[in-house]
Design a protein around this nucleic acid. Structure first.
Lengths: 350, 350
DNA sequence: CATCGTTGCCCAATCGATTGGGTAACTGTG
DNA sequence: CACAGTTACCCAATCGATTGGGCAACGATG
């Protein structure tokens, strides 16, 4: 109830009074388009208004403006969890783009739980966001469909669902690239750690990988496609399961770098040398990948860029434009975890 | 300009009209305290108002309320970067606590740049946040002092500065714990990768470590305290610098897990076995630490909890209470990177 | 029966901006 | 000089809530 309060903010009214004009004139000069400003006041009056505003350190009260205009310049962002570096990086892209456009963003974690997705979305809507960006779409699209039916403007990022507007990496192609690489290295007994079954990222990466292998005449048995959480612990669990199998794979594609790191750890624990006994590839090229003791082969995805494009997409949608989804090209980055020649001396000595 | 718009939100006025009461009565029943509600309307009227509100799916418009009350229930959070897992985790704690209290948060990245800190803070203030949480304080406190002078309510988290209210880990103690551990293992030639020179976290961890060693009669030459960025690339650079020195340390304390990971990579590149040839400890016990090929000894800090407590602190401040800073106790977690006995078979074979 | 307290509401001002619609003064044209 | 068009403003309604004050009706009290 108390107040730490700084000095009260100057309002348009005080600015207008001191500048000797009506508040409407001050509004047009300070907050309107330059077109508005020109026709609202003469050169000198406008300068005077701006001078006074500057002096009083006037800042338009966004709540008052939103109340009147019904637009908040706020966008809600819902992600599974910001402590996932992939999402944090995408969010940074979102924030950069939003800031550049004078928009503000709210982020919330849904932990990929339908109930929380719903709850967070309602919170965002009750804050009257102009639109939403979802980084946590589930492939079944149930929740997203509902949002679409309510005609709430939104864009998906990182994961796609249905044909709702989205900005994603070309995950299918990414999976193919890894398969291509493994095939070149001569791996025939391979496995995929496929991520969460509801995430299009994992699904598409797996599909691309599987399809490329199939084209090479090699079928992946379903026992060598294991779902997992998108983190190191998840990768570890999945790897343990794979190693329990009768025939050990010679190469493992984890659809996420952190899961791949878990795989590296598990291999060591089992006395296997990553990059030599078993090849490992990840996805996303997180900054850690190249710094690991055994640097990780991975697929670089434009995470930051995806965030920015998602904002652009949403803004175009808010402007009533017709939009279409974007799919950005990934790159394969080969490092020691799949290429023994690149292993450091000590690791090669193994 | 266009509108994707969903159906218009119901307002208090329509609810009041349908329930046959004045809007003020509806306001007290729906948005006031239960005390207000009781004296504003009879049992039956109140129930009727709530029924209508429910039916119309009424949500109070926070902008209208803020305009009138001058409180926004918004708090601004400024961190160096959310793609740093430590900050992302702290932010999750902040978000959880805020949600529980019915507050919303804005996060922004300052990249530890004074200019951006200033700019983001102004953005938050122009959004009329009730208070701020800074996770990016610099030890010199210049910027923070300025904010304090403007009597803007805020709390610091993770890093302290001056005697502004903060919630931190007891970093000094954390540093001592690592030193204690290294001493027990018999390490006398040790080094510290100390993080950014302006972050209290690195400063205090280094100081605790240095002091404990001094008490054991061992002085750290300044050449063995190297500053670095708080990420794997930073750790790698710092480690390279240390290995260039004449006398190689037998143990390295990196004040951050990611920097420690960079050290592990560098050691390998130089043909040195982490945990055997050189002991390595990190700080924060990020989830990755235990999953690495060579699991990392580190100091567990209560990141999530710190975030929640920072919110509590800020809220108490906003309520006009006198508050004092909190310093939470860390724990040492010993793993293979400092203890050869714990190395996995293949690593021991090295 | 006059008085006093409650109970249960309603009135109306207010927060700070936006915006459609005036209108007075001035300029240019025929 | 009459008239149209432009320039440079001002007026006032409005967005959706909050909140101090007022007041009628009713029961209790002396």
């Amino acid at each position: 109830m108390g107040q730490g309060e700084g000095q009260r903010h100057a309002t348009l009214r005080t600015v207008a009074q001191l500048a000797g004009v009506d508040v409407s004139t001050a509004s047009r000069v300070l907050n309107g388009t330059s077109e508005d400003a020109r026709r609202a006041a003469s050169r000198e009056k406008a300068d005077e208004i701006r001078r006074v505003a500057e002096e009083l350190n006037y800042r338009s009260n966004p709540h008052a403006a939103s109340l009147r205009t019904r637009r908040t310049k706020l966008i809600g962002v819902i992600v599974p969890r910001l402590s996932d570096l992939v999402l944090a990086t995408i969010y940074e892209g979102i924030e950069d783009a939003a800031t550049r456009l004078g928009l503000s963003t709210f982020v919330m974690n849904s932990h990929d739980e339908p109930r929380e997705q719903k709850a967070r979305t309602e919170v965002a809507l009750s804050r009257r966001v102009d639109g939403l960006i979802f980084g946590d779409a589930h492939i079944d699209g149930r929740f997203i469909d509902e949002i679409a039916e309510r005609r709430i403007p939104f864009a998906l990022v990182n994961r796609r669902a249905g044909n709702h507007p989205s900005v994603t990496c070309d995950d299918y192609l990414g999976g193919r690239l890894v398969a291509e690489h493994f095939l070149e290295l001569g791996h025939e007994r391979v496995a995929v750690i496929a991520g969460e079954p509801y995430a299009s990222t994992g699904i598409d990466r797996t599909a691309g990988f599987r399809d490329r292998y199939r084209e090479a005449g090699i079928r992946l048995p379903s026992s060598r496609i294991v779902h997992s959480h998108f983190d190191a612990a998840g990768g570890r669990q999945a790897a343990e399961q794979l190693l329990r199998g009768r025939t050990r794979p010679t190469a493992v594609f984890a659809v996420n770098d952190f899961a791949a790191i878990g795989v590296l750890g598990t291999l060591r624990d089992h006395g296997l040398r990553p990059g030599k006994d078993v090849a490992v590839a990840g996805f996303n090229d997180t900054p850690l990948a190249r710094e690991l003791p055994v640097p990780l082969t991975t697929v670089r995805s434009p995470m930051h860029e995806m965030g920015g494009l998602a904002v652009d997409l949403l803004v175009r949608l808010l402007d009533g434009e017709q939009v279409k989804s974007e799919r950005l090209a990934p790159d394969l980055v080969v490092r020691a975890s799949t290429d023994p020649a690149r292993l450091s001396p000590v690791a090669t000595d193994l």
